[in-house]
Amino acid sequence: MGASAWGYFVPYQPDLDLALQALRQKVFAEGDYYWGLTADWVPPEERRPRPQRIAELFADEYVQECGTHSILDMDHVLGPEERPDYRTVEPVSADEAKERAGTDRLTRAHIDAIDGLVRGRWFGRCAVLHDDAGQRAEIYFWGYSGD
C-alpha cells in the first residue's frame, strides 16, 4: 500500500502535546483512519470490527505492521530536549520557519513552504499558525505513516 500523507488543523492551545492527544481521540472516535480488517479482500473469517479503545487498536498485530495512515500513528509531540524518533511529532522551530517561509509567524499561506520538513515515514511535524492579526490561531499537524 505504501505510506499515506495526512494533515490536520486544530484550534491553538499552548500545550502542543495536549492538542495532539485530543486530535488523536477525535480521529479515533470518528473512525477516520485506515482499518483494513473489514475490507472486502480480507477473508470473512478474518474480518474484525474496529477496536473500542486506542490501546486496543495498537495491540493489534496488523496495525503494528501497517499503521492507521493517520495522526493516530503518532505518539507524542517532542519536548525541547528530545530528538525526533519513530512515531513522534516535531514542532517547527523558529529558525526552520524563517528559512522556509521567511517568517516565524506562520499562517496557512505558508503551508507549502514547510510541508517538506517531514523527515520521512512514521514521523510528524506541527506548526503554530497565526491569523491575519498575527495572533496564534491554530496548530497544523502533518506527516506520513503506514505501510
Rank of each mutant, 00 (worst) to 15 (best):
I114M: 12
D40N: 08
A19K: 02
D115G: 05
L18P: 01
I54C: 07
P84F: 06
W122S: 06
Y8I: 01
P44M: 12
Y12P: 02
A137V: 00
Y34F: 15
D32Y: 04
I114N: 10
G143L: 11
E82V: 01
D75A: 14
A101P: 06
Y62G: 06
D60N: 15
T38Q: 14
K26S: 08
P84R: 10
G124W: 03
L16T: 00
I54P: 07
I139Q: 04
P11H: 08
R87N: 08
V63H: 07
I139D: 03
I71N: 03
L72S: 07
G143T: 04
S145K: 10
I54M: 15
R53K: 14
D15N: 15
L16W: 02
G146A: 12
D132Q: 12
S93T: 12
S93V: 01
R121E: 10
D115P: 01
L23A: 12
T103I: 04
A22V: 00
V10D: 03
E45M: 09
G116H: 13
R48A: 15
R24I: 01
G36H: 06
D104G: 06
R100T: 00
A137P: 04
D32C: 05
A127E: 10
P11F: 03
G120W: 05
Y33D: 10
G116D: 15
E82F: 05
D60I: 03
E90H: 06
Y140N: 08
G143V: 03
S93M: 12
R83W: 04
K26C: 05
P14H: 09
E45Y: 07
E56N: 09
L18Q: 11
R47L: 06
E46W: 08
R119I: 01
V42S: 08
R136D: 05
S70A: 13
R24M: 05
R50D: 09
Y34H: 15
W6H: 14
D60V: 03
I71A: 14
V27W: 05
L72A: 07
D15S: 11
R119H: 05
Y34S: 13
L20H: 04
E82H: 07
E138S: 15
F58I: 05
V10I: 03
E96W: 04
K26D: 07
G134K: 10
G7N: 14
R83F: 03
S93L: 09
W6S: 09
